[in-house]
């Protein structure tokens, strides 16, 4: 795994995430979200798990930003009012404290990663985690029906 590729992908992911968080135009933020998730899929490829990369690309980098842009257009809320300075200060302090607290856990020992084949992942998915897999499919069905019921226009 090349250090240069990781550094490039990491920089692009962080830049995209910063645009998502800071942009005043929500459409720009949604497009940046698509790029961020696309580069996270690239990180999964670097990590040797192409299955996860494909799913990340199809669901998070393609479907979710399109849905987001669709909702932005429907609700006509392209521009956002920025929060007050106190909010930014509090949020920066909290996020910084979170990072500082987590930094102690990062001294992981040096081991090599192992590629995860799609066949292996699929076999595990349908044997070890068969019950969660079925529950997830029911959850997706429930979410779909729930979204339709919630967003439906009531006839008066």
């Amino acid at each position: 795994m090349s250090v240069l590729g990781f550094a490039l992908l990491a920089a692009l992911v962080l830049a995209g995430a910063l645009v998502v968080v800071l942009s005043e135009n929500v459409v720009h933020a949604a497009v940046a979200l698509a790029f961020t998730f696309f580069f996270v899929a690239g990180l999964y490829v670097l990590l040797g798990s192409p299955m996860l990369a494909v799913i990340q690309f199809a669901v998070n980098a393609a479907a979710i930003p399109i849905l987001t842009i669709f909702i932005i257009m429907t609700t006509q809320s392209r521009r956002v009012r920025p929060a007050s300075g106190a909010f930014y200060l509090i949020a920066t302090v909290l996020a910084g404290a979170f990072l500082f607290g987590l930094w102690g856990f990062l001294g992981a020992p040096q081991t090599a990663f192992r590629a995860v084949s799609p066949e292996g992942l699929g076999a595990r998915l349908l044997s070890v985690t068969l019950l969660p897999f079925e529950v997830a499919s029911v959850l997706l069905l429930l979410a779909m029906v729930g979204a339709i019921v919630l967003a439906r226009r009531l006839e008066k």
Binding site: A10, V13, L14, A17, L18, V20, V21, V26, A29, L43, T68, I71, I72, T75, S77, V80, R81, P82, A83, F87, Y88, I90, A91, T92, L94, A95, G96, F98, L99, L102, W103, F105, L106, A108
Partner: peptide, 23 residues
């Protein structure tokens, strides 16, 4: 882990500062 921690901190910042529910 460091990359995902920084990404998480950025997301946390966004949740705390954004006033648009979509954002």
């Amino acid at each position: 882990l460091a990359l995902s921690a920084v990404l998480f901190a950025i997301g946390l910042f966004g949740v705390l500062t954004r006033r648009n529910l979509i954002a």
